[in-house]
């Protein structure tokens, strides 16, 4: 009888164990940089390409031997890859990197950043509401550029059951006001990654 009781208790224990407690969950910021990443283009890739481009641009004879630093308009980065990117952010990053690596050799036109504010200021000056340095306004003439720097991202992306691969080509072009291509350079980034089987 004692043994039967023990067997019954053992059976009850088994049933009790059928519902195991859920494992604890670790709470982390979903926006934090994880241990693994994707194969898409990131801002540091653009910065790295921009750094190389800046070094190349300042060594161009037309730039290096110019009597005064030429004015460059940086056109918004265009994206023809299969990876959505924040083109505004990348344009800003590109300009910032070029400013850092080509100081004094070139000047950059920031029409996207200040044109509207300058136009509004001009209206105020013309109306007499504000006066630069206490003198009457004589009209605003915005600067123009000598060259346009374009940056285009293209890419080939593939995915398979095992993972993903992204190859990006960041192509820079420096074009003068007569549409003459002065300089072109390309930078490649290739990333590959494997996906865990539990996601495949």
């Amino acid at each position: 009888m004692k043994r039967l009781f023990a067997a019954a208790a053992f059976a009850a224990l088994l049933f009790g164990c059928a519902e195991t407690p859920e494992p604890s969950v670790r709470y982390v910021d979903p926006g934090a940089l994880g241990e693994v990443a994707g194969t898409g283009l990131e801002s540091q890739d653009i910065a790295s390409a921009a750094q190389k481009a800046a070094q190349s641009i300042v060594n161009l004879p037309a730039i290096a031997s110019a009597a005064k630093p030429p004015m460059i308009l940086i056109a918004p980065v265009t994206n023809r890859s299969a990876s959505p990117i924040d083109t505004d952010l990348y344009t800003t990053k590109l300009r910032g990197t070029l400013m850092q690596y080509a100081p004094g050799k070139v000047r950059f036109l920031a029409r996207d950043a200040a044109a509207k504010a300058n136009e509004r200021e001009q209206e105020l000056r013309e109306s007499g509401a504000v006066q630069p340095g206490g003198t009457a306004a004589t009209g605003r003439v915005g600067a123009t550029y000598d060259y346009v720097l374009t940056a285009e991202v293209r890419g080939i992306s593939t995915s398979s059951k095992r993972g993903q691969s992204d190859w990006f080509l960041v192509a820079f072009k420096l074009v003068d006001f007569q549409d003459v291509l002065l300089w072109e350079n390309q930078y490649e980034v290739k990333k590959e990654g494997r996906e865990n089987a539990i996601y495949r």
Partner: peptide, 24 residues
């Protein structure tokens, strides 16, 4: 917010390896 998480490849990631366990 979802896209970078979807793009993050998880090969070798502890949380993904854990999910393969018989007991998880």
């Amino acid at each position: 917010r979802a896209i970078p998480e979807v793009e993050a490849l998880q090969e070798g990631a502890p949380q993904a390896e854990r999910a393969k366990s018989v007991f998880v």
